[in-house]
């Protein structure tokens, strides 16, 4: 599959898409992310350490796992070939068992250097509706 690019004609300001990133975040996913990213912080994979050495209720997700999962919602919407920016703030921790839903909203469509740019708001919430990350992204789209 080649990098994909969304078409501007398919997008309008206010368009929004909701993506269920997971119905039930598993500890296995945290282990997969640790191995793939190289972030082996035991707070994310070692329940004994997280509880007994660090005082947390248990392991919790890497913020970057939530950002990565939310990134899929962005690329599913606008493609990945012409992504220009993607940034988030980490608002709240994500725990095993969480349901995560990302909402991507078109906030602007602008012209820059002869290209059409779609600006996006990105929010991911947990099952209680609490924001876990918020941010923005921008992608060039074909005219």
């Amino acid at each position: 599959m080649s990098p994909r690019t969304a078409a501007a004609g398919d997008l309008a300001v206010g368009d929004t898409v909701e993506t269920v990133l997971t119905e039930d975040l598993t500890r296995t996913r945290l282990v997969m992310y640790a191995g793939a990213s190289g972030d082996y912080n035991p707070l994310h994979t070692d329940d004994v350490y997280a509880r007994e050495a660090a005082g947390y209720p248990g392991v919790f997700a890497h913020g970057m796992l939530t950002m990565g999962m939310t990134g899929k919602a962005v690329t599913d919407f606008v493609g990945d070939g012409d992504l220009l920016r993607y940034g988030v703030r980490f608002r709240s921790q994500v725990w095993p068992g969480d349901r995560l839903v990302a909402t991507v909203t078109v906030t602007g469509i602008t012209e820059s250097a002869g290209r059409r740019i779609v600006e996006l708001d990105v929010v991911t919430v947990n099952g209680d509706g609490v924001q876990v990350i918020t941010g923005t992204a921008a992608a060039a789209v074909s005219a």
Binding site: P3, R29, G35, A36, G68, G71, G81
Partner: peptide, 23 residues
């Protein structure tokens, strides 16, 4: 492996021609 960890199906990045996930 990274694409699997963040939730993509193997069809997204599995053949090595599609670039890489944003993060």
């Amino acid at each position: 492996l990274f694409s699997r960890a963040v939730g993509y199906p193997d069809s997204a990045y599995g053949d090595g021609t599609a670039g890489a996930p944003p993060t």
